[in-house]
Design a binder for these strands. Structure first.
Lengths: 118, 118
DNA sequence: TATAGTACTTGACATTTCAAAGCGATTCAA
DNA sequence: TTGAATCGCTTTGAAATGTCAAGTACTATA
């Protein structure tokens, strides 16, 4: 269990980095600029977002397209590897809609959620 | 986009907590005690693990079974809701084996991984 | 001319995670 | 019988990580 390369472990390690799944999910909808992405993800501060994007680009899940430096205009879009994460997100979606119950609201208070009984 | 309850968002929020996916994956294999789980997950310190388990129990993904207090013997097992996370993990698995390439080793050095070209 | 928008960076602060040690109790090997 | 190992954690203080507010340099719109 030590010396073998375990892709799942690596994948989990990377997918569990804060905001990664949110970012991917947002980019699955459409390519976005930095601020647009930031708004869409909701709650991720620019420092973290920038760092996460660097990493996603480095890993090859996201491609960064600088359209013009000044005025700044950039597009982040998923690579094929990124797009194929859609299946993961879909499963999360399926699980969530089956098991997650609304606690109170969503946007503001996101600290408590419960599972449905069934 | 503010006041609606978005289960996927909640689910991602919760699944991206550090170690959660690793824990679930480990428990998918079999129910485990605290230390056993700790070893199987690998690298999570006990304080964090304990907290994560509390949360998982609270949310209803994991059930804690205290078999004896002294000598201590506890079992953590997935609830049905937890078990159905298997599909998520399976998709991660599929994605990982398709796109993740071994960088160097696995156990010790887990800081860099690359995607395959295809 | 003024306001809002782009993509970020910076530095101070808060939260999270960490490794290490320890605890009471039991079981097992020497 | 003594000592080490195992169990399920908790505590500690320090290190890593994430967050916030503000700012940069510039353009486009009003």
């Amino acid at each position: 269990m030590e010396n073998e390369f375990c892709p799942v472990h690596e994948a989990i390690q990377f997918l569990q980095e804060k905001w990664v799944l949110h970012i991917v999910r947002s980019l699955l909808e459409e390519p976005r600029g930095f601020n647009d992405l930031s708004r869409s993800v909701g709650g991720c501060n620019p420092a973290t977002l920038a760092q996460r994007l660097d990493r996603l680009v480095e890993i090859g899940v996201v491609a960064k397209e600088v359209q013009s430096v000044m005025p700044p205009r950039t597009l982040y879009r998923l690579t094929p590897a990124g797009e194929s994460l859609q299946r993961v997100i879909q499963e999360i979606d399926a699980w969530a809609t089956e098991y997650l119950r609304p606690a109170e609201s969503c946007g503001a208070v996101c600290d408590k959620q419960y599972l449905s009984e069934a």
